[in-house]
């Protein structure tokens, strides 16, 4: 039983075909890294999975919720799918605690006390229990990104999507975020992460998917894929990273 099932999706921006029949099956607790050149459609795929972009063909299924070209029950789907963005996108007018409790309260109708209990729990998991009263502009980038992860976690999603969540961070801050993600992976979260951190993909992801020209060009167990790339495109792509 797969946690996330992507079937032959196509996505156009105007006349530009950005996703050209992408299919992926992701198992429960599996961690999948998505790599590929800029413009290959990685972000677009994640955004489609979460219904932020409409697809023109194919279907996406998460926890029994299905969306297709006609749309579908996006809200139910999003309750099961958390998403973390490159630019954190915390709500600047809310405290850390309010950022984290907002969705449980208004989307799930969880009471205030329970929502705060959940919030404290997830904030502890990302190592920011003591920051609950702060505003986003009082936090470092790495802290903001961990709050964003906590905010997403508080909805108790079945799948979490990460789009280059360390790309906007100073190098010395990426470590804390990667560590948080690794802990999530160890705890059994199903994760899809777009990343440029090849080392991290190789080490943490069970499987790595290489996207090229809007297609899943090559995929396999991470270790294998990085050690024995089959296609010249992938070989070209990872060559500079190997040294």
């Amino acid at each position: 039983m797969s946690a996330l099932h992507i079937n032959e999706i196509q996505k156009y921006f105007g006349a530009l075909l950005v996703l050209d029949g992408v299919s992926l099956d992701i198992a429960q607790s599996e961690v999948v890294a998505v790599i590929g050149r800029s413009g290959s459609g990685k972000s677009t795929m994640l955004r489609c999975i979460n219904g932020l972009e409409k697809i023109q063909a194919g279907s996406i299924e998460v926890a029994g919720h299905r969306i297709g070209p006609q749309g579908g029950d996006l809200r139910s789907l999003r309750k099961e799918v958390g998403m973390v963005f490159q630019s954190y996108n915390l709500f600047p007018h809310l405290t850390v605690l309010e950022n984290v409790t907002l969705a449980p309260k208004v989307v799930k109708g969880v009471g205030r006390e329970e929502a705060e209990a959940i919030a404290h729990d997830v904030l502890r998991r990302v190592g920011l229990a003591e920051k609950s009263g702060a505003y986003s502009d009082e936090l470092s980038g790495g802290q903001q990104q961990r709050v964003a992860i906590a905010r997403s976690l508080a909805m108790q999603p079945k799948v979490m999507l990460f789009d280059e969540v360390t790309s906007a961070l100073d190098p010395e801050l990426t470590g804390e975020v990667l560590k948080t993600m690794e802990e999530l992976a160890d705890a059994g979260m199903t994760m899809v992460l777009v990343t440029h951190e090849m080392g991290f993909a190789r080490q943490v992801a069970d499987r790595t998917v290489f996207m090229h020209k809007g297609k899943v060009w090559e995929q396999g167990p991470s270790e294998e894929l990085f050690s024995y790339p089959q296609t010249p495109e992938l070989r070209n792509f990872i060559a500079p990273n190997l040294k």
């Binding site: 809200r75 999003r78 309750k79 996108n89």
Partner: peptide, 9 residues
């Protein structure tokens, strides 16, 4: 988008 991704209407 962030609010959308959190399933807010």
């Amino acid at each position: 988008e962030a609010a959308d991704a959190l399933a807010l209407t």
